[in-house]
Design a protein around this nucleic acid. Sequence first.
DNA 1: ATGGTGGACAATCCA
Length: 258
Amino acid sequence: MLIATFNCNSVRARLGIVLDWLAAHEPDVLALQETKCVDEQFPAEAFEEAGWRVVYRGQKSYNGVALVSRDELADVSFGLGDDDGESGPRLARGRLGDVTILNTYVPQGSEIGSDKFQFKLEWFARVRRYLEANFDASADKLVWVGDLNVAPEAKDVYDPKRIWPHVCYCQETIDAFAAVVSWGLEDIFRKHLPDEGVYTFWDYRMPMAAQRNRGWRIDHVWATAPAAAGSKEVFVDTEPRMAERPSDHTFVGARFEW
DNA sequence: ATGGTGGACAATCCA
């Protein structure tokens, strides 16, 4: 089973890129973040014409998540279930067989100390409660992917000394994230790609960021132990297409065999 | 150097 994730920064603007990637890699599930459109505007027909199913939940201008798959997903739901009116376009869930895929777009947080930053920290705590309420970490196959807006370790950013502290790389965010994964999730990305210099995001506001590999690892793959036991490979799409697709995140794929 | 660029959407917000 191939599970992939991509912050597309507008599904309408990157539709061709997404469809090309789907055709080239044939994932079982592709999780999209920042689709940036309301459901009426989501280009579902284009996916369906290419033989894909897609479920989605968006809002005007910002956020928005989707799950693309060849086979129909079971138990599809959106949001954390503790309705704040915003978690729907940030969390999508579906199941293929006995494997549940969780796709989140974690709030970025704007600035340390801001209301949005506090919202981000609380969002992680809500994810922890959501996991506790819905899954058994020792028994369920659960794979959590998405733009988690956290760089948990120094090697997850290109220049840790300069970047610290940042909303995605500071003690409060790292602690809040650690309190989620301590529930019982393993870092599948680092299990297979432990080296420094492997990133998933390059800020297009920084000149030559991609070319100079001034990147961050903020797109993730985590899994419960039963799911992690089957992980075989994680890959980052390193096709040199950043210049023609300045979405600044890249595709990440994780292959599992159980 | 507190910028830079891109997307949505129509003056800024968000990343």
